[in-house]
C-alpha cells in the first residue's frame, strides 16, 4: 500500500459517501444518473467476485464490502424508495448504457491477461469502469444546473483514478516487473473522460460561480 493508492481509495470512498449523504438526507437524487449507478454496481459485482476466494487484508475486504453495499443501495434508493425515485429525472437520463456493457464484455473476451472466468470478468469491470461515468456526464450537460453535492461527487470520482495512476507509476518504479498495461490504459482513459469536467469545475471554483457545463 502506498500513499497514492490510499489517497485514491479515500477519495473514492468520499465520492460514494457524498452521494449517499445527498440521497439519504435530502431524499433527492436530482441530477444523479441511475444508469451510471447501475454500471458501477456491475463494475463492483464483477470486480470483487474474488472477495470470497482470496483474502489480502481486512482493509481490502472491508472496502470491497463498502463499495458493493453503497453502489447497490444507491441503485435501490433511486429505483424503489418512494420519495427518492420521484426525484429521478428519467426523461433526461437516457444514455443507452447497455451499449457500453456489450463492447466492454467483447473487449474483455479479446484482450485480457489470462483467459479464466474471474480474470475476464475482472478485465470487463476495468473497461466498464472506464466508461461508466458517461451517462452521468451527459446528464450533467443536459441538466445544466449542477448542485454542489453532485458536482463534488463527480469531482471526487474522477480524482480517485488520478491518484491510482500515481500509484501505478510508484509501483512500477518500486516493484520489479510490476507491469499491467490493461489496468493502466483503462485507468488513463477513465481519467481523461473527466478532463473537460475538471476544467469547468475548476473554472467555476476559481470564479466562484455556479458550475455550468457547455451544452
Amino acid at each position: 500500500m502506498n500513499i497514492f493508492r490510499l489517497a485514491g481509495d479515500m477519495t473514492h470512498l468520499a465520492s460514494v459517501l457524498v452521494l449517499l449523504l445527498k440521497i439519504h438526507t435530502i431524499k433527492s437524487c436530482a441530477g444523479v444518473s441511475l444508469k451510471t449507478q447501475e454500471l458501477y454496481a456491475i463494475v463492483f459485482a464483477t470486480r470483487y467476485l474474488d472477495i470470497f476466494t482470496s483474502f489480502y487484508s481486512i482493509y481490502n475486504t472491508l472496502m470491497k464490502l463498502i463499495f458493493l453495499g453503497s453502489s447497490f443501495s444507491i441503485v435501490w434508493y433511486m429505483r424503489y424508495h418512494k420519495t427518492v425515485r420521484r426525484t429521478y429525472d428519467r426523461e433526461q437520463d437516457t444514455f443507452r448504457h447497455w451499449f457500453l456493457v456489450l463492447p466492454c464484455l467483447l473487449l474483455a473476451l479479446l484482450i485480457h491477461e489470462k483467459f479464466t472466468f474471474l480474470e475476464v470478468l475482472w478485465t470487463f469491470s476495468l473497461y466498464l469502469e472506464a466508461v461508466a461515468i458517461l451517462p452521468q456526464l451527459v446528464l450533467l450537460q443536459r441538466t445544466r444546473n449542477i448542485d454542489n453535492l453532485t458536482g463534488q461527487y463527480v469531482f471526487l470520482l474522477g480524482g480517485y483514478r488520478g491518484f491510482y495512476i500515481l500509484n501505478w507509476i510508484y509501483r512500477y518504479l518500486t516493484e520489479p516487473h510490476f507491469v499491467h498495461w490493461i489496468t493502466w490504459i483503462a485507468g488513463l482513459v477513465q481519467t481523461l473522460l473527466y478532463a473537460d469536467f475538471f476544467y469547468y469545475y475548476f473554472q467555476s471554483w476559481k470564479n466562484n460561480k455556479k458550475l455550468q457545463l457547455p451544452a
Binding site: R5, D9, S54, S57, E113, W122, E175, H177, F178, H180
Partner: peptide, 10 residues
C-alpha cells in the same frame, strides 16, 4: 506472488 498483480487493489 499475490502482491505482484493488481488484484490486491480495489
Amino acid at each position: 506472488q499475490q502482491e505482484e498483480n493488481t488484484k490486491d487493489e480495489l
